[in-house]
Structure formats: C-alpha cells, structure tokens
Amino acid sequence: MTQGEPNTLEIAGISVSWLCDSKPDECIRAPSVPTHPSDVTLHIRNEPPPPFPTKEKPFDAGQTWALFHSGNRLVLQNAGLGARTPPPRCLILAHDLKSGDLHMTGNTPQDTDPLGYPLNQVLWIVLLAQGRGVLFHACGTDDGKGYLFLGNSGDGKSTTAKLLFDHGLAVLNDDRIIVRETKGVFWMHGTPWHGDFKEHSSHALPVDKLFFLRHGKKNSARAKTGAEAVSMLLARAFPPFWDKQGMAFTIEFCQRLVSAIPCYELTFVPDARMIDFVRNL
C-alpha cells in the first residue's frame, strides 16, 4: 500500500474508507476493501484538531466520548467535553457525513480500525440514524433461521451465545448486532465490536424471532407487542439520543420491527432444552 491509497472497513453494509497523511508503514490497514464506493471517506491527520470556535448541541457521554456541532460540522471525540487534555482522536465530519478528518495524537493504534472504541460505534450509530438501521445490545445467532436475543449486561447474551454455539449454531456477535431493513425484510448483521465471544461472524441473515432475555428458573416466553415491545427494544438499543430526527427514525424503525417479527420476553435456563424451546415457539 502506498501513501494516499484508501483502506476501507465495512460493517453491516456501511463502509468507511480512510487515507493517511503518514508514512505508508505507519498507516492502519483494513482487512478488506469492498468493491462499491464508501459511505464515508476520512483523512487521517497525525496532528491535533484545530480549535473550535463554538460547541453547539453537545452530547457528553462522560469520560469516554462526546460529540458536538461546530458550524456545519459534526465533531466526535474520544474524551468527555470536560477533559483537561486534548482527545487522542477527534473526528470532524462534513455536514453531509460523507467525508471528514480524523485527527490523531499520541500512540498510533495497532488495530485495523483507526477510529477505535468508542468512536467506531458512535460513528456507526450516527450513520445508522440516517435511515439505515439500529445498533442493538443483542446476541444474534444463525440456526438457518435468525434469532435475535436482546438484553442489557447480565441478562444472558453471552451465555446464550456460548450455549447455541456449542450446539452448532453460528454466532454473529454476543453483544452488538445491527439490524437493517431491505425491501421489508429485517436483516441482522454481525459486528466486530465488544462481546466476550471470539467466534463471531460478520454475515447477515433475516431476523425470524426476537427475544428479550431474562434469566429464570424455567424456560418460558410471553409475547410482546405494540408500545411495550417498542419500549423494550429502545431500552436495549444504542439510539442517537442527541439527534431529534435520528431518534424519531429509530423509534419508527423499532415499531416496524416489532410489527414484522414475533417478539417474546424469554426467561430461560441455560441448557440444551432452551434451544428446542426457542425453535418451537
């Protein structure tokens, strides 16, 4: 690879390319290059960002990341707004979100993703909110049919992933799944993010059943519909809380999802009987 040649990362059909201004051997390499044009092209700048005269409509996630608007640009940084030192990574996106500059200072990351955690996930949340889909706190598995198990920390996503993997099912991811709709079909996509489970897969398949996980003393399921199901989905999603239009899309997307897919609150015991229980619902 030579200087100026783009690298691309594609997750859930959304691709981000980057060009380096550093020496080629210092540039971060992506594992694959898709054949279609990227949704976003970034220039990596190994220098601090310019000062921002204004910081409007901010969202401060605390120590880990923040975003704000400055002029017609959207800025994401991997530090809180109150941080005393400049953020090691600062992404300045153009108004149309199709291009931007990623300013990096400090140690160059050694992975295949120049954004790193959490900016990679925040960027995808921003892009998904433009009518593309939603990132969920979920485990997705492939049994020939797609099962989406949603839950917050401790609800049993990793336990479910391990159980189903041990019984021959493919696991897309045990903690972060993106759902997108294509021609009325809701597809779940694996991501490379988070999760304890290393055997994850980036492939996609239609969602057939959706489960809100809860540990229990027996396997049981209660159907969930309407506003209750939408509310449960939102509580297990990563919506753009800072973006009114994006939030409206996310709620509407969740409504369409629960209208199209059977949803259950699933209490389960983590043994093989759970698999048959889920299959037979």
Binding site: F59, D60, V230, P239, F241, M247
Partner: peptide, 8 residues
C-alpha cells in the same frame, strides 16, 4: 412513546 433529546 416519548423520548427526550438529551445532552448527556
């Protein structure tokens, strides 16, 4: 369903 737009 109501969800507030937030800053934090």
């Amino acid at each position: 369903i109501l969800v507030p737009v937030r800053q934090g």
